[in-house]
Design a protein around this nucleic acid. Structure first.
Lengths: 74, 74
DNA sequence: AAGAAATCGGGTAATTCGGGCC
DNA sequence: CCTGTCCGAATTACCCGATTTC
């Protein structure tokens, strides 16, 4: 059973997302997400290989803010 | 101080993590963690059967070092 | 002693990185 | 200023069968 949550033991403090997944959530190019990270607009964690991972909670918060912004007519 | 250092369970001073657990922390494939060990980017201990185990302290340090959080300001 | 899950290997697609340009 | 796309190079993900772990 391995699909959404993979925790065999211990606990993960936070769930991480790949650039592609974040890009899909915002409907933008993965490259754009990378630029956000470079610009410091979103926190990122690097793998030893140099690839970026993003905190799901942070992404969700950002996404939620944008949604709320649109609704408020901002 | 007569029976305080006694660990009823086999709790080693160094907690060891499986490739799957390390992979979950970085949100990568367990195979990738193996590749890191082969490349010498992370220390690994082999079981008599050839499986790899990783020191939790080392993994934590590495993860913490590669974590560029949303620092100060915004 | 037997079984399910995980990790070994290798080999081949799919992502991501980085810079530069529109 | 911000985003999308093209390129080459590097990293990572999924495929298999066999072995190890618990």
């Amino acid at each position: 059973m391995t699909a959404t949550t993979q925790q065999t033991r211990h606990d993960s403090p936070e769930q991480l997302l790949t650039p592609g997944e974040v890009a899909a959530l915002f409907r933008v190019d993965p490259k754009t997400v990378t630029r956000w990270a470079t610009a410091g607009r979103i926190g990122s964690i690097r793998t030893p290989g140099g690839h970026r991972r993003f905190r799901e909670s942070e992404v969700r918060t950002l996404l939620d803010e944008l949604t709320r912004d649109a609704e408020t007519g901002r």
